[in-house]
Amino acid sequence: MPPNPLRNPYWRFLVAGFRGQSAYPLATFAGLVANATFGLLKGGIMGAAVDSSGGELAGYSAATMAAFVWLGQGMLGSVNFWGGSALQDRIRTGDVAVDFLRPVSVQAAHVLTDVGKGLFALLPRGLPSVVIGVLVSHMALPGDPATLALGLVSLLLGIAVSHATVYLVSVAGLWLVETRGVAVLYMAVSGFFAGLYTPVYLYPDWLLAITLATPFPAMMQLPVDVLSGRVTGWAAGQHLTVQLGWLVAVLVAGHLATRAGRRRLEVQGG
């Protein structure tokens, strides 16, 4: 009899993250309120910028700019821009030693659990944010099922890249012990380069080149481009390829960092 994939431990980590996040309905609702509030403010500012530029700004029309705003707000609960994770606390307290004794990958366990949390946030927080955007603006939407399908794949890749990168921030604790400073730096840099505040295409050429050389646009800017239908066909395929490349890169970096950090891990106390 073939093994049941639903009993695979890594699948269970993903499900555990999904279910665990569902235990905080009030926090999720508060996040939705924050998303809607800042979405309205951000939409007004970015819409005014498009209008003042004659109806187009760096290739964005009023509809595509509204899609940028509201799709981005919908992703905020799923993409980790604050740099924190449960692994940081486990490294600081020494509990990570128990994780290393288990017959599963520490990296896969933590990344999949966090991805599961992000996937849950799409339902009570992400989708309602997009619905609000549709109701209050004329935001661009995918024009056909194929574009929507590519957009959803891009969204999943963006979530995965985000949490795989935050794992790198967390595993730095094997050297630093206290990683709050690194997390704050990550929070300051990631949102700016990911397109959290404005589309990265508004940056000067030199800054845009630096931005595109980082994994951060793969977390938000590229998924929003594909989901909104701003890029289609071959261009959308290129976006997904870039995202997949960054996912592989950060996972490999996380694996190597875990192996190196495990060799020097010291846990004191009893």
Rank of each mutant, 00 (worst) to 15 (best):
Y197K: 12
G133V: 05
T165F: 10
P199H: 09
E178W: 14
L176C: 10
T147K: 02
L227A: 04
V189D: 01
L222S: 10
A213Q: 07
V184Y: 14
H163V: 10
W206T: 13
T211I: 04
L207S: 11
D225C: 05
V177Y: 09
W206M: 10
P145V: 05
L152C: 01
V224L: 02
Y186I: 10
F192W: 04
E178L: 13
L150Y: 00
V226Y: 06
S137Q: 06
L150R: 06
D205H: 09
G143P: 00
T214P: 01
L156I: 00
Y167R: 07
T214E: 03
L148N: 09
G195W: 13
P204L: 14
L135F: 00
M220G: 06
L148Y: 00
I210D: 10
S170D: 10
V153K: 01
T211F: 08
P199Y: 03
V184L: 15
H138W: 13
P199W: 12
T179S: 05
L174R: 00
Q221D: 05
P223M: 02
V153S: 01
Y186K: 05
A160I: 01
F192P: 12
D144R: 07
L174F: 04
V153N: 06
G191A: 10
G143E: 01
G195D: 04
A188F: 10
S162A: 15
A209V: 08
I210S: 12
V171P: 02
F216V: 09
T214D: 05
P145D: 08
V224C: 06
P215H: 06
T147M: 14
A146M: 03
V200Q: 03
L155V: 07
P217K: 12
G191N: 05
